[in-house]
Amino acid sequence: MSVLDGLRSQSLETPSSSISTAEGLRDFLSRRPEVLELRRTLATGGIVIDDVRNFVQHLLQDFRPNEKFAGDYILAAIAVALESFPGAFADEYLTDLTSLHIREVPLAPRVARLAMQQRETSVSEATWREKILSIPDVGEFRQPTEWKPIPVRAQTDRVDHQMAT
């Protein structure tokens, strides 16, 4: 069973779909092993964006107008998993979900809005760490502590480094 199929499990559905506010649902989901595993698998490339896209499209086949959509909490769980995941797909997913205001899916868009707020902080931090870790050719120098970052101008996201003299 893939990590995405794990979101359909009764062990997640029963407690998650008994929560009625977005804040509680997001907080609850962010602690669940199914969501943490999805987040980890996404980060390590165990599943790719198309897997998520296909899973969501398949899930939406059960949507019926004027009926509560039973996959509401699953869309919310993916939003929580994606909130710290850099890249355009996570932006697209959260932005599209946030734009919904429909009765059939009341909670996932609200959770996505909270995830977007969280994302503004977490993804910028993750991006900064990526830049630090990708110092060019740092491996060829045995004493990386001799390197110091040059102050970065506010209008650029480029990070340069030079050897301390």
Binding site: L60, F63, S99, I102, R103, P106
Partner: peptide, 29 residues
């Protein structure tokens, strides 16, 4: 990605609901 929901769903609609101090309470049936 959610076009089906966007165009197939029904818009959220609440009722008049207020606190004792008459502040509106967001809601949706």
């Amino acid at each position: 990605m959610f076009e089906l929901l966007k165009f197939g769903g029904s818009a959220e609609a609440g009722i008049a609901l207020e606190t004792r101090q008459r502040t509106p309470i967001p809601n949706s049936q």
